[in-house]
Design a binder for these strands. Structure first.
Length: 271
DNA sequence: ATGGGCACCTGGCTGC
DNA sequence: TGCAGCCAGGTGCCCA
């Protein structure tokens, strides 16, 4: 499911229900996620109060009195706020039960998601420690991209999906950003001009902001914490639109495969 | 350091 | 109806 806008939508959606609330229990029905949930996680977390809900890359950080939960939604995960008494359905792997009688329920069919507890600053956790800048921060810009792309032969599409370059940009928004910036996805990262990199950084920020405003993109199974779909899908220019006319110039959108993932682009608008 | 490929997992769809 | 094959929003790890 989720790229940065979907995780951000999840963050802002769960925050009102859990901020300042005490966790009374963590119910783990299926510990075998991408990494097995630590057996002692529930007791480490129980009776602690939620102090903050943050996002770093595609990770949700739930700060407690002492330590933080680090949660990733993987490809197919979602978090919902609901009454803890409601019977769980298939793939409802974890409940974080609150004093209010509500719970945060983590559903993830493919189990590529993860849940960790750390007693330390979560930014120092091995999974987060070496991540690149946030795309919406000011230090992510054309100059930065130009600098890190120097000499790189990897294609610009795969470069954008590398979490050591920039975080939060996955398969949908990589294609969409390149369309908005007018850049062909197969060009070498090191051969994109300074001016093009400036356009690209601006395009990434714009597409992510627009998608957050629309509540994210629902392709198949993403739902927000209230169970509703995001509606950015209608605003996609190229993703999953192979053969359909470009919204800007009517040329049929093309699809290709890079690193085993589908890429979409307009051969006329992108050079 | 860089780049490429694989692995992890379930479910939905297509075509025979 | 059944089943094989392919595809899907991520990313850590191993190898050359």
């Amino acid at each position: 499911m989720p790229e940065l806008p979907e995780v951000e939508t999840t963050r802002s959606g769960i925050a009102p229900a859990i901020l300042g609330r005490r966790i009374v229990a963590v119910v783990v029905r299926e510990p075998r996620l991408r990494w097995r949930i630590a057996a002692d996680l529930p007791e480490a977390v129980a009776q602690q109060t939620v102090r903050n809900v943050r996002r770093r890359a595609k990770y949700l950080l739930i700060d407690l009195d002492r330590g933080s939960l680090i949660l990733h939604l993987g490809m197919s995960g979602n978090l919902r706020v609901m009454d803890a008494q409601i019977a769980p359905i298939t793939h409802d792997h974890v409940d974080i039960v609150l004093e209010t009688g509500q719970c945060l329920r983590f559903n993830d069919p493919r189990r590529f998601g993860s849940l960790h507890f750390t007693a330390d600053d979560p930014h120092d956790h091995p999974l987060l420690k070496r991540l690149a800048p946030e795309p919406l921060d000011d230090d992510f810009n054309g100059d930065y991209l130009t600098k890190v792309a120097r000499g790189r032969k990897v294609t610009i599409k795969q470069f954008l999906m590398n979490s050591h370059v920039v975080v939060g940009v996955g398969n949908i928004y990589a294609s969409e950003s390149l369309f908005r910036a007018g850049i062909r996805p197969r060009r070498a990262a090191g051969r994109i001009t300074k001016e093009e990199m400036a356009r690209l950084a601006t395009a990434i920020k714009a597409v992510l902001r627009d998608a957050i405003k629309a509540g994210g993109t629902t392709l198949r199974d993403y739902v927000n914490p209230e169970g509703a779909s995001g509606y950015f899908r209608q605003k996609l220019f190229v993703y999953e639109r192979a053969g359909e006319p470009c919204r800007r110039c009517k040329t049929p959108i093309r699809q290709l495969t890079q690193g085993g993932r589908s890429t979409y682009f307009c051969p006329a608008c992108q050079r």
